[in-house]
Structures are given as structure tokens and as C-alpha cells.
């Protein structure tokens, strides 16, 4: 077992920079085959699917549709370990305020903008939008992808919209800006985050390593980490 030969597909629908995601996956799972792909067949045959996204959700949805990837993404989301990142989280919901666009509706709920009138910090100064930088993620319940990551660790965010799930049972993590918003959701084989694990240093790499090791079935409990290279070892390799 382990990640040797494992195929990890990063869904490429022409939006933004997917190289960072692929590089980080290669770093934590050097024995795996990471493919950045817009081929539905590749998504169908991969053992893990990562669904990233940058930019504006209406553009992302349009590109996804025009490349005929909607069905393949939905199929992957229904079956195999699936990691949504940023807009890749937002697109799993029904609707976004950004451009008044429909999402993939895997989960009930909407994507909403940080409310302008509430963006005031404790010192009375305004809080900027986009929410950009390192903020704390509060793990609201255990999950194999949180394994080894300290409670309230910081991850790197850059976004102006966030998801509001109808079912709060989906929430796996929250972040304050200034009010708490949902920064991670999980259900069955899906885990999806608003932040960028590929840009979140050791905590982010650990989350990606946990994803590579996750069977997509066990929501709670101990998952052996034999699939992933310990971060220290991966770091050693990068130095050599």
C-alpha cells in the first residue's frame, strides 16, 4: 500500500494557477502520479481528485461547462476521495452571489460575500476584502484530514466570498473575519476548504498528505498514514 503509483487528478478547466497545487501534491506524495488534466477519462480513472479554483466563480463554472467536465467532476465527487479548494469548495454549492450564478449543487446552500457593513475589526478599523492572508481555522469536529494539525492552526486565505451551508452538519472548520464563516466542509468522501493548503506551509502540506492517505470512507477515526511521506523526509529530499 501507500501512494506508489496512485493517480491524483487535479481538475484543470483553464482558470488560474494549478501548478502550485500539483507541486505541493508531488512534494507530499513523490511516488504518486499527479496529473493536471481536463480529460474526463483521467478524472474517472484517478484514485483521488483535487478540484481547485481561482478567480471568479461565474468564469469557473462557465469554463467547467465548456470543457464538458461537469459530469466527470460530479461523478468523482460522488465516489472517490475528493478535495475542493477555494472556488472548488464554492462551486459545490447551489448558488453564488458572485455574478448570480448556479453552482454544481452537491450541497445545499449559497455562496455569499463578506457583508460590507460588518467588516469592522475590534479596534474600529475596517477589515479589507478580499480576506487575504493567514487566519486560524477552528476544527469543529475530528476528521482524518485534520490529523496531526493543531487546533486553530493558520492557513492562507484569499477570497471575497464564502459558503453558507444549509446543513451545519457539513461544517468541519470555521474562521473568524470578523464573524465566523465556514472555512471547511466535509461529507462522506468529500472534503473541501476555503483556504489554500498548497500555500499554507507545514499545516497545508500535512492536510494534503492526509488527503493522499485518506480512503474517503472513514469520516472519523484513525487512518494509517502509510500512504504519505512524513513531511520531514519530504523536506530532506527537497534539500538534496
Amino acid at each position: 500500500m501507500g501512494s506508489t503509483g496512485m493517480r491524483i487528478a487535479v481538475v484543470d478547466y483553464g482558470m488560474g494557477n494549478l501548478r502550485s497545487v500539483a507541486k505541493a501534491l508531488e512534494h507530499v506524495a513523490p511516488a504518486a502520479r499527479v496529473v493536471v488534466t481536463d480529460d474526463p477519462k483521467e478524472l474517472a480513472s484517478a484514485e483521488r481528485v483535487v478540484f481547485p479554483g481561482q478567480g471568479a466563480m461565474p468564469d469557473c463554472i462557465r469554463e467547467l461547462e465548456s470543457r464538458g467536465l461537469r459530469g466527470a467532476v460530479l461523478e468523482a465527487a460522488a465516489q472517490k476521495p475528493f478535495l475542493g479548494i477555494c472556488i472548488g469548495l464554492q462551486m459545490l454549492f447551489e448558488h453564488s452571489e458572485e455574478g448570480d450564478v448556479a453552482g454544481l449543487a452537491v450541497f445545499a446552500g449559497n455562496v455569499v460575500r463578506f457583508p460590507h457593513e460588518q467588516m469592522v475589526g475590534a479596534d474600529g478599523h475596517k477589515l479589507k476584502v478580499p480576506h487575504m492572508g493567514w487566519n486560524k481555522v477552528h476544527q469543529t469536529r475530528p476528521h482524518p484530514l485534520w490529523r496531526g494539525i493543531e487546533q486553530d492552526s493558520r492557513f492562507y486565505f484569499v477570497h471575497s466570498y464564502f459558503v453558507a451551508p444549509v446543513d451545519i452538519g457539513l461544517v468541519a472548520g470555521t474562521t473568524d473575519y470578523p464573524a465566523p464563516f465556514t472555512s471547511a466542509v466535509s461529507a462522506a468522501n468529500i472534503f473541501a476548504v476555503q483556504f489554500h493548503p498548497e500555500k499554507s506551509h507545514s499545516a497545508g502540506l500535512r492536510l494534503l498528505a492526509n488527503f493522499v492517505a485518506w480512503d474517503g470512507l472513514s469520516e472519523v477515526g484513525v487512518v494509517p498514514l502509510d500512504g504519505a511521506v512524513p513531511l520531514e523526509a519530504a523536506a530532506d529530499r527537497s534539500r538534496s
Partner: peptide, 14 residues
Amino acid sequence: PLHLPDAIVGLATR
């Protein structure tokens, strides 16, 4: 959100 305690914004200055 309207009744938050003071000072819980955790966004770090970069």
C-alpha cells in the same frame, strides 16, 4: 455577528 466579543479577528499581519 452583531454581539461578538471584542478582538477575535485572527487574520495575521503579513
